[in-house]
Each structure stands twice: as structure tokens, then as C-alpha cells.
Design a protein around this nucleic acid. Sequence first.
DNA 1: AAGCCTTTGAAGTTC
DNA 2: GAACTTCAAAGGCTT
Length: 546
Amino acid sequence: MPQLNGGGGDDLGANDEMISFKDEGEQEEKISENVSAERDLDDVKSSLVNESESSSDSEQAERRPQTRPDTESYEKARDYFSEALRRQQDGGFFKSPHYPGYPFLMIPDLTNPYLSNGSLSPSARTSNKVPVVQHAHHVHPLTPLITYSNEHFSPGTPPSHLSPEILDPKTGIPRTPHPSELSPYYPLSPGAVGSIAHPLGWLMQQQGQPMYSIPPGGFRHPYPALAMNASMSSLVSSRFSPHMVTPPPHGLHQTGIPHPAIVSPAIKQEPSGDMSPSMHAKSPVPPKKEEDKRPHIKKPLNAFMLYMKEMRAKVVAECTLKESAAINQILGRRWHSLSREEQAKYYELARKERQLHSQLYPGWSARDNYGKRKKRKRDNKPDSKPEDFSIRSKKQCVQYLPSEKMCDSPASSHGSMLDSPATPSAALASPAAPAATHSEQAQPLSLTTKPEGRMHHHFSLAGKASGSTSSSSSSSSSSSSSQPISIPIGTSGSQPTTPILTRPIPFASLHHSMLSPPSPFHQAALHSHHALFQSQPLSLVTKPTE
DNA sequence: AAGCCTTTGAAGTTC
DNA sequence: GAACTTCAAAGGCTT
């Protein structure tokens, strides 16, 4: 699969673009971004502090220790990360790649690829926690889009693009590199497969982790029948394991390489790490098991998810905050503050992901996962009135921004929309994907339309939707998603914060601005606007701005 | 142990 | 077709 390294195809261009290093200006941007991140963090932190303050002292006493266990390792990792950052800023050897983490160059994933499915390690959750910072710690600063090009890897291995075949570390037999080896995004499961020299093997070894194995005889493309172009193969390498593709009649799939997008329910129940690798290698899906036992094929990640995956470690490394919810808020804001070009890259990646996913799992549909996740029922009164919201939600919201600022709020919304890969570039971002779906077409604009829609949802929630028990969760999520700037305070339980609010962003104007590329002036204004916003605390909303 | 929280986006379902 | 819902990641927190 030589093309993995840029064998050509339209992907290459995109990949090249994506793996290109940032220039000086971008470096500066990064730095300032870090600064703004600090502010973001401060915002969130302050909200957390407030939250803590609302809690009893004893609660705080109990909580703090809980967040300390990793402190030491975290500090170390942080130091390491800082060092890496410093190097980046020095413009030296370690320069920040455009997509430091993408595709999915998350070390934790490496060590626990599909840990989530429990196939490899004792506890996905546990194993995932500590390394949060280890991303920074172990992600080689020179590892950009591995998926698209692994040439940045393997300090000790010759770049595969130099030779289509690589030697099997075990057998010494030349073989074609398996996609999985090329991209750590979807790291192989050490337990599932023996030990192959992963491009990040040096890292793995560094951690004392087992290397990935390959089946005797080396790798072969598991799905020869699967038509794949260069772009696909590159993605396949990272994200979608062939497992779920039409089951190979003769077991080529028996490489047993777990795919990140696949989670076997059965396996999930089996957290023990003593599961024999062969078990996975043989057949991830017991023939007898049916529907419910079918491996769970995850949805392809959307642009934001890709962005989050890549940036999470960075944000986490920048602060001591580890709560994903808080981190996600920051990331959400950052996402909106990204330039449309930057977002466009992620949209493009997401588009490819979807494309690849659809080709790998032709029969798969999001419907397959629909309603599978068990939701804890909450005691929201089905017949609660809209007003009940404020009453029901014990959490309070802090107003972070002057009310008038809320209007253009920013960073999150306003700016984002303007900066987001709006149409024109949207075309660039998610260009007429082959068979572009309606959703795809609306994709870049969704940023704009969503808030409105959700607002709707929110209001209706109070009225109609509130009736559904399951809606509580989603509603909370939805409502809050429409106002990422609102942070709940107070802890009383997990009652969803239902800050209703929203950013009164004139849809029409937003839409308009999205339809027409921002002028340089506009851009400049936006940037200053972002700067302003970012220097401001989160804005709040406790009540629906009906 | 399972689910919540939190984010955006895609795609599902419902009306 | 609009509105609403679910899931994707992640990890601390809650139930």
C-alpha cells in the first residue's frame, strides 16, 4: 500500500496540507491560542470554583484528593509537554504539526486502542485516565497526520514510503505494511495482536508497552475485495478496521486487529486483560452470537469530534483540569474561534471519515447504534412546565459577560459562524462529496442553523419534549450546547443544567455572513472580537431569552 | 458499574 | 421537511 504515503490521489494534496507545519505566524497564533486557552480554562475553573464553593467543605475535601492521584505524573508529563512546546516555539526540531493528534495519534489510544471495547486492556477507563497527559508526553512532536503519512514516524524504521514493503519484525519477511501500522489513530490492541513494530514502537517500548504483533506471515490486506483508493487506504489505516466489512469468507480478517470503531458488546463485558489474544484474533464475533452480540460499529467522527480528539490532550496539558465536560466547553469555544480554513480541514477529514466508513461498512447505518445506549432515567417530571426549568434546575448560572456581549457572543457562536467554513469555503471544506448528502451540504452551515434549531428544541422541550424521559439528558445537552458559554454552578446532583439561553444571534445576519466570505476587514474585526471575547469570561444565561 | 456531563456535527426518528 | 433525538470522544463525577 505504497499510496499510503502519498501514493497520489486527491488525498495527498489534502494530506500534505494537513501535515504541513505551521509557519512562524501560526506559531504565534498557537501561542496566543494557548494564552487564550488559559483564559478559557480560567473561565471554566472559575465556574468550577464557584461550584465548589457552593458545595460543602466536606465535599470539597473529598473531591480534591480525588483529583490528585495523577498529579505527580501529570506534572511530569506537563513538564515534558512544556518542553516540547518550548521546542516548538523555538522553531527547532519539534515543530508543531498541523494536526498533532490527527489522525488519532493519541497515545492513550495507542496503549489502549480499543480499550473501550475491553478487548485489550483491563480497564479502558482506567487506562485512559492517567495518560491524558501522556499524549503530550509520548506523542512525538513530529507526528502529524500519521494516517496520511507515516514518514514522520519510526525513528528507527525506514519510512515505508521509501520501500513499499517493510520487514516483519518477527519473521523478517518483507511485507506490505498494514494500515494499522501506519496509523496509530486506531492503535492496535496489544492483546489482540501480537507485536508488530508499530511506527511508534519506540514510544510504546518506552512505556513498556507491548508492541503490536502481526499474524504469522505478516499482514495482508484483510479486505482485498474492498475497493480502496489512496484516500481510503490512508483512512482505513487509521480508523476503520476491516473487521466489520463483509465478513471475509476465509478468515483474512483474522488478523484480529481491533478497530476503534468497533466495540464488541461481548468483549465489553470482559474487562479482564487476561483475554487471550487469540480469542480476538480468531473471531471478534462469535458466530453464534447475533444482533446483540454483533460488534458495535461506531459512528464516524464528525469534524468537531476529530478536532476534540486532537486538541483535548493539549488543552488538558495546559491546565490541571481534566473533566471532559469542562474541557469540551473550552474546545467548543476554540472550535468556534478557529478560522474557517482550519475548520474546513476538519470538515474535510470528517467527510473522508464518513466516506471511508461507508465504504468499509456498506451496510452500516447510524440507525444500528440508535437507541442502543442506555440512558439513565432522570426524574424530570414529564409534565413540567417551561417555568419549571428554572425551578427544577438547581444549578445556577453565572453571568460572565455583560448582557450586551451575549448578543455577539462570540467566540463561540458569532465568531464561529463567521469564521466557520462557511459556504464558499465550505465547498472547500466539504466539497461536493461524492453523493453529498443533504446533511453534508448543510454541514458547514450547521453551525449557524443549529443554535436556532436547538433553541427550538429547547423551548419545545419545556413544552412538549419535556415529556420524554430520555429527553432530559439530550435536552440538557442540547440546550447547553446552544450556549456553550453558560456554565452551571452548583452541584446538586446531576440534574441537567438547563440554562436556557442562547445567544441571540440574528440568524439572518449570521447566515448572511456565512454566505459571503468575510472581508479582510471583517476577518480582522472577528479576530479582535475573538480576542475580546476570549479575554472575557463566559457569558451566562440562566433564563430563556424568549 | 453504568450513566451523566459537555461540546458540535451527522444522521436517525417523529410528526 | 422541520423538529427533535441519539451517538460519536473523553474522563471526572454521580447515582
